[in-house]
Amino acid sequence: MSMNATQASAFAKEALALISSQFYAGDTPYACGLPMVPVVKTEPGSVPNGNLTPTDDEEGLGMVVSEGLLAIADNVAIKFALAHELGHGISEHVLSKVGLTGASGEATEVIADLNAAYLLNQLGIGWDTVIASISEWRTSQIFDTHKEGDHPPGDHRVKYVKQLRALIVRKVAFNDAARQICQALPDAGTSP
């Protein structure tokens, strides 16, 4: 399958509603001083990619994604990638909630992955389905083979999501699980 921008925006709306209830006590999530809005626009490009960006009216922060991202055959992989981008918008807030204020490096990418996997599960996608989908990252190209900037290699990213699932299954709360995983990263330095 694949998605169009309208379907991706509908998913973003659903995900943002859950983000609001799970992490913001029902309030609108903000990033970069703007409210996060369920607007997904496409740009040319076959490589799956996405970023948060101000909307055309600059009244909110939506997403711009490559046509290649929405063309991925696996809708769970697309949703994971979209939720990852939304996860960047809330990563500072979530890292603060889990006791890692000022965390840097890989933690900023890993927390976005953990947010994405957790959100998908909370939206009714089973852990096994999420893990199976992101494990096929070489096919979907949602991850890089090697470390790129703060992005860990794809195999490591799958490993961290598997660790999250294992902790959640053992009834560890998301915040505690995310802290354990991110704290163990080699460059998760925090500011005093």
Rank of each mutant, 00 (worst) to 15 (best):
D74G: 03
G45F: 05
R165N: 10
D150H: 13
L123N: 10
S9E: 09
A173C: 11
W127Q: 01
V172A: 00
D144L: 12
A10V: 08
E14H: 13
K97A: 15
A77L: 05
E85M: 01
P152T: 00
V158Q: 09
A107Q: 01
A188M: 02
A31D: 09
D176M: 10
T6R: 13
S20N: 11
S9H: 06
Y160E: 08
E43Y: 11
K171T: 13
S20A: 15
D128F: 11
D27S: 15
T53F: 13
E67S: 13
V47D: 12
S135F: 04
L18H: 14
P192W: 12
A178L: 03
T139C: 10
E85L: 04
R157T: 05
L86W: 04
I168M: 15
H93I: 08
A83W: 01
L185C: 07
G154W: 04
G62A: 05
T101P: 10
V130M: 05
I90W: 06
T55R: 06
R157Q: 01
T42K: 08
N75V: 14
G60S: 01
T145Y: 12
F23Y: 06
L34H: 07
P38N: 01
L82M: 00
V76D: 05
E92W: 12
A12S: 06
M1Q: 14
T129S: 12
K97Y: 14
I90K: 07
I19V: 15
P29T: 05
S9W: 04
S104M: 15
P29H: 06
A83F: 00
N121Q: 13
L164I: 07
P54D: 05
T190Y: 08
D74V: 06
L167D: 14
M3T: 05
L70F: 03
K79R: 14
V47C: 11
P153I: 02
L86R: 01
G68S: 03
V110I: 05
F143S: 03
K171N: 14
T28D: 10
V158Y: 08
K97V: 13
S21Y: 08
I131R: 09
Q180P: 11
M1P: 14
D57E: 04
R157L: 03
Q7S: 08
E92V: 15
G26F: 05
E136R: 14
H93D: 11
A83K: 02
A117N: 03
E92C: 12
Q183L: 15
